[in-house]
Each structure stands twice: as structure tokens, then as C-alpha cells.
Design a protein around this nucleic acid. Structure first.
Length: 279
DNA sequence: CTTTCGTCCTGACTGC
DNA sequence: TGCAGTCAGGACGAAA
């Protein structure tokens, strides 16, 4: 499931292949993903040159030479595959792009939680999908002060607060679990109680876990493929995520007495944590 | 207003 | 072996 580091990796892969290139062929193979495709998307993309590709939260922003921006979200199962002469579309290939130097770029999304939208570059930040996003966790605006301010009035668990894209933009279930583990903060803590001292510990840890994952080229558990189209998944080692019952990497005592990593459900999502190390 | 919960979707996995 | 049921999850929108 692509989170910020995976989206960053995809952006970098797409940028290498697409920036400066003209989209010579565009094919849209169904009317919608989570939402309908933009009106006349094929016509609006065909013949356009890609200027830059950037990321905001988990959105891929493809800037075109007519000052339009294609907004892409990978959702849960979305992936981009890149290659030369990829042949007939695979199952769930929904959008096919070809560049003037012969690269094929395909958006594949089995579960169709992803989306595409288009808007003008000048009004990009006020687009409904982007307008209420909080600070980038790797940006200068994200600090213990801004995080504390965002958490101060929240009575929801810190786990839920960190998944709230208005608090900080781009964290998903995996990296919230991992960051809380590294910070030694229980996911069940009321968000407001994390403001202050704990937020000072949390901010660098969030940056650290994301930076490591980006450096590793993204990570996955199931169905993520790097933008380069390379075969295989990058297997990232998580401390707690999806490790229910396994030994917590920080606890040296016998797992039979600790129970290892616990799984609980918060807001209908699995949370993994170590009750001994996270308070 | 804030917070929670249902919804979209398919494939991987579990258990009978 | 086959098949029904469960689960996964981002983000929106409805409900509380």
C-alpha cells in the first residue's frame, strides 16, 4: 500500500522517464476509478509535454506544458509500471501513456481506490483534494511546535490523529505504527497529551522512518512495484507493523511472558504496537 | 464544530 | 480441491 515513501519513489521513477517528454499516445480504458476520470482527459493529455513531476502528501502531481496539472493518487493498490513496448495491457491497466522516446507508462490499480484529476497549476493548492492537507512531514513547516498545535485540541487517539491528513500529510497506517513505536508512544494515548515533550520526540522519529524508507526505495507487503518497473518487491523490515505475536525488537525478555507485538483495532484499522515499550 | 463509521474494490488468505 | 467468508486500506461523505 503506497504511503509517502512509496509515492516519492514512484515520483522519482516517473520523473526520470517522463520529464521533458511529450505524451504521444494516451489511452483510458474505463470511465472511472474511485471518481470519474477528468472530462476529456485523453484529449487534454495527448501531445502535451511533461514539465515536472512532484509529490504532495500521497499525490503525484504531473505538470504539463499548458499549465495544467494531472493529479494522481495510487490509492491502496495503484502502481505505475514503466518499460519499452510493454505489449497488450495487463489486467487492471486503466491508463496507458506513451512518450515520444518510446516509453510506456501504465497506471494499474486492481482495487480502484486511486484517482486522477486535472486542474490549473495556478489554482493547484486550492484544489479540493489538496486544499486541506497539513504540512509535509519532511518539510520545514513540520515541527514540534506545529504538531503540538495541531494535536492540542484533539481528544482522538494519537494513532488516528497522525492518520489525519490535515495534521500531517502523507502518513498511512504502516508509518504511523512504526513512528509511534520508535518514539515509545502508545497509539491509544489521547492526541492532546502528546503535544509538547512527546511531540518533540515524535517529529524527528517521523522524519527518520520516512527518510529511511525513501532511501530504501519504498517498501511493500503485498502489491507494490517500483516505478522503474523492476521485478519484485522491495521488502522493508518493520519493527511492529504486521508482526502480531512476534518479538518486539526492543524487548530482550522472553516473548512467552510479554506476548510480543500486539494488534488492536482503532478506527477500523489495525494498530500494531508493543505495550511494554510504548506508553 | 469534532469524531466515528460505512463505503468503494479485488485479491490473498483462512477454514470448513 | 472448492468455495464462501474475512481482511486489507486511503480518503470521502454521512451520521452521531
Amino acid at each position: 500500500m503506497p504511503e509517502l515513501p512509496e509515492v516519492e519513489t514512484v515520483c522519482r521513477g516517473l520523473a526520470m522517464k517522463m520529464e521533458g517528454r511529450v505524451l504521444t499516445r494516451v489511452e483510458q480504458r474505463r470511465p472511472n476509478l474511485r471518481i470519474p476520470f477528468p472530462d476529456r482527459m485523453v484529449e487534454r493529455l495527448t501531445g502535451r509535454r511533461v514539465v515536472t513531476i512532484r509529490r504532495r502528501a500521497k499525490y503525484i502531481l504531473i505538470h504539463l506544458d499548458d499549465d495544467q496539472v494531472l493529479i494522481v493518487h495510487l490509492g491502496m493498490s495503484g502502481r505505475m509500471t514503466i518499460g519499452q513496448d510493454l505489449g497488450p495491457p495487463a489486467a487492471h491497466d486503466h491508463v496507458l501513456l506513451t512518450t515520444d522516446d518510446g516509453s510506456d507508462i501504465r497506471f494499474n490499480d486492481a482495487r480502484r481506490f486511486g484517482l486522477m484529476a486535472m486542474t490549473g497549476a495556478d489554482i493547484l493548492d486550492s484544489h479540493p483534494l489538496l486544499a486541506s492537507l497539513g504540512p509535509e512531514p519532511l518539510g520545514n513547516e513540520f515541527s514540534a511546535e506545529t504538531l503540538s498545535r495541531a494535536l492540542k485540541a484533539k481528544i482522538t487517539p494519537i494513532k488516528s490523529a497522525l492518520l489525519d491528513q490535515t495534521v500531517v500529510a502523507g502518513l498511512g497506517n504502516i508509518y504511523v505504527c512504526e513512528a509511534l513505536f520508535r518514539a515509545g508512544i502508545s497509539p491509544t494515548r489521547i492526541a492532546a497529551t502528546v503535544a509538547g515533550r512527546d511531540a518533540e520526540r515524535l517529529v524527528p522519529v517521523i522524519r527518520e522512518v520516512l527518510t529511511e524508507a525513501i532511501a530504501a526505495g519504498g517498501s511493500t507487503l503485498r502489491d507494490y512495484v517500483q516505478a522503474s518497473g523492476e521485478l519484485g518487491y522491495f521488502q522493508h523490515s518493520f519493527s511492529v507493523y504486521d508482526r502480531e505475536g512476534q518479538a518486539c525488537p526492543g524487548c530482550t525478555c522472553d516473548i512467552s511472558s510479554t506476548g510480543g507485538v500486539q494488534r488492536i483495532v482503532q478506527a477500523n484499522r489495525s494498530t500494531f504496537y508493543c505495550p511494554r515499550r510504548q506508553r
